[in-house]
């Protein structure tokens, strides 16, 4: 069961407010948002994540008009992991995440590479455990 992160990146965003639904391209959405926040430095997991202005991560909730955008985040999966490890899974109630990289395809390549690495590890682990 490999999460296909590639499918979640760079697509248009659907915002649901009550029974009303609005669809925006992520670029449009980015311009509209007035709630830009920096990720706290303690959640930054590597040097790349501190390259200013390169990465944007947009998160939101389907049922409420609550949304945030973070920049300077590269290792998003580790970021999530840190948040949940420190605060528990309940803290993560967002229903969509979009990640954008100002350098075309680099982030997608990184996620795909991570997925492949996870799959390789899974195969090796099965052999090791005799499954």
């Amino acid at each position: 069961m490999i999460i296909n992160i590639k499918e979640r990146i760079g697509k248009e965003i659907e915002l649901k407010v009550g029974k009303t639904s609005h669809v925006f391209s992520w670029q449009e959405w980015l311009k509209m948002s007035s709630d830009f926040l920096e990720v706290n430095s303690k959640y930054r997991t590597n040097l790349l994540s501190q390259q200013k202005g390169r990465y944007y991560v947009i998160i939101g909730q389907e049922n409420y008009p609550i949304y945030k955008a973070y920049n300077n985040v590269n290792n998003w999966l580790s970021y999530i992991d840190s948040m949940i490890r420190n605060h528990g899974e309940d803290i993560w109630k967002y229903s969509f995440i979009y990640v954008c990289d100002t350098q075309d395809e680099k982030l997608i390549e990184a996620f795909v590479k991570k997925s492949e690495k996870d799959a390789d590890l899974d195969d090796n682990l099965k052999k090791y455990m005799g499954l």
Binding site: I84, E89, W92, L125, K126, M129, G130, L131
Partner: peptide
């Protein structure tokens, strides 16, 4: 029990949290 019949899965309700898988030995 997973479809591979080798793991048991604890499904996460949060779609951004990976479901946990337990190899059964």
């Amino acid at each position: 029990l997973d479809s591979d019949e080798k793991h048991y899965t604890y499904e996460s309700e949060n779609k951004f949290v990976t479901s946990k898988r337990f190899p059964y030995v």
